[in-house]
Design a protein around this nucleic acid. Structure first.
Lengths: 334, 334
DNA sequence: TTGTACGCGTTATCAC
DNA sequence: GTGATAACGCGTACAA
């Protein structure tokens, strides 16, 4: 482990010159630079990240906080963020909470020690103790996908309401009248927005919406499965269902399969969030795709801009797109 | 941003005592501890990670290097690793190279500055320049899934050969005689091991293996798609195919679908690596599942043990299991 | 253009 | 049990 002093000695210059030479500053003679570089190379010298971070008061790590890194949506966000970060010589610390609010709070808190220069987060927890933990972060904060109540920070999101309204409209265009939604937790703004789009689509169609066709509070496979079961058990079950997110969709599909029903013959399905395997599912699933990778890039970008001095950048709204496959059909279709 | 000096002053003790009190060392009076804790809490004091890392000569970050974080296999490894790391108060830096060897080398090199206390890696690059980059790492190194040539480090893996031999044996038990394999790069030890298991299964069945039934060098969806196309174009195409990994399987399935063929009627498929959506694919895909989460935990564990002073821990071999679904059937089955 | 010297915030060593 | 102080390794005024 050679230090800057060793390099300085070997190159016959001062440590200050070593720093400057290695940063390729204009104030250093080409010859001096050459000497220093040679010495550094010979000693396998790499400046210590810790010393640099301490000296500069800022690390070169960006944090990404997600509910579940195994969910491909967040994995893609992570990839986008890491790529953008790398362009600015930052690395990416990813923390995933397994959808566990308690663990989420712990993780965020444990990163308040300056490990991170900035933090991008998609959170699940909604209580006060959590949001305050989030704002305890030293550097800039950016929100991805959803904004918890009471937190002021730039947000990267898609236009949930608009795209949902249009996509769900397809159900009605096909002649469905009994359309249900498996929605997320009531205190998620994304759930509210998608639900709002869903209601608008009903309104556009001039149809009444029954309360029992909206199932609140579901997240993850288990939630989708349970919600779909309830829906199927209704006296007058829906003929089409809009699923709040990718995992909920998976759970819903399993419930349908277990019940011996067929998609889209017995029931049509529309998913929010695409998955790479949706084209291979029986049947291929029609989905609203969010530009996850771009969202990750945008989040990193927002962070980098704040680190660069920009005060409070505006929210970034990216377009989501409907990908039509084969899980939608007119009611009673065979 | 209160520092340790502020806390010391407010508590009326020295900085050394602050450290000791906050670490709950036995050599500090309960009263002193209480004073210090109160002061720290009042000032929102959090020890600086950078200063601590510099002082201790070691960060509390573990690195995980994967080819593609969007691949759920690696995402699960990451989750396992992060969970185990958290138990020891470490965080996890994840770097993903998009299967790009050049980027891979850059990333690894850029982390040689002591950012990481230890590194776990699954690599794709195989040339000398890369392997040497890998060993330039300051702390301990652990390999996951596969070991590049010429690198000495503990490895976490599954018993590829054994499980492949058994699983592929099912093809023959069902009466298949024309069984192909879409294999990975020749210089991957995992590819060699799985290929070896594949050959053994042929041997067990007492059948001859045609060279054209082995397609080397494929990785990712595009590779699987191309390889399957070639296989289908053969004068005597196989009736069963074993796929080297999950993404290759996805590509292969797409090629089969595009060709208008049916699984398993026209062709049986066995995948290495499971995916959460495989049960929902048409048909549900039979797969060999590696315990990805456990592998991640094991990798972190190996790293932590080395950080704890253990010299060179032995490799960890975890069991993989065959998950039978519906993509296998006797040849000519309808 | 280059060198000197100090600060960054902790932890560890020693002395008390 | 507690305090003073020297590292840790780099960046950067400021001086030369």
């Amino acid at each position: 482990m050679a230090g800057i002093r060793d390099v300085a000695k070997l190159a016959g210059v001062s440590t200050a010159t070593v720093t400057r030479a290695l940063r390729d500053e204009a104030s250093v003679t080409p010859e001096t630079k050459a000497k220093v570089r040679a010495a550094a190379a010979r000693l396998d010298y790499v400046p210590s990240a810790a010393a640099r971070a301490l000296s500069q008061g800022r690390s070169s790590l960006l944090g990404l906080f997600v509910p579940d890194i195994v969910n491909p949506f967040y994995a893609e966000v992570a990839q986008g963020m890491a790529d953008r970060a790398a362009e600015a010589n930052y690395h990416c610390v990813i923390a995933s909470s397994h959808l566990n609010p308690e663990r989420e709070r712990q993780l965020v808190t444990s990163l308040h020690d300056g490990t991170l220069a900035g933090l991008a987060a998609t959170t699940v927890g909604t209580d006060e103790s959590f949001t305050s933990a989030l704002t305890g972060q030293r550097g800039p904060l950016v929100l991805v996908d959803r904004r918890p109540r009471g937190i002021r920070a730039p947000l990267v999101r898609t236009d949930n309401r608009k795209v949902t309204r249009e996509a769900v409209g397809q159900f009605f265009a096909m002649g469905h009248t009994k359309v249900a939604m498996i929605s997320g937790p009531r205190d998620f703004d994304t759930a509210c927005q998608r639900l709002s789009g869903f209601r608008l689509a009903y309104k556009d169609a001039g149809l009444p919406l029954r309360d029992e066709y909206i199932r609140h509070g579901h997240l993850g496979e288990a939630g989708g499965l349970a919600a779909m079961r309830e829906l199927l058990a209704l006296p007058s079950p829906p003929t089409a269902v809009f699923c709040f997110n990718n995992l909920v969709t998976v759970g819903a599909l399993m419930a349908i399969r277990t019940a011996g029903l067929k998609v889209p013959g017995d029931i049509s399905i529309l998913a929010f969030d695409d998955m790479s395997l949706f084209p291979l599912v029986d049947p291929p699933i029609t989905a609203i795709a969010q530009p996850a990778y771009q969202m990750g890039r945008a989040a990193a970008d927002l962070l980098l801009r704040q680190l660069g001095g920009e005060k409070s950048p505006a929210d970034v709204v990216l377009p989501a797109t409907l990908i039509e496959r084969e899980s939608l059909a007119p009611p009673g279709f065979n």
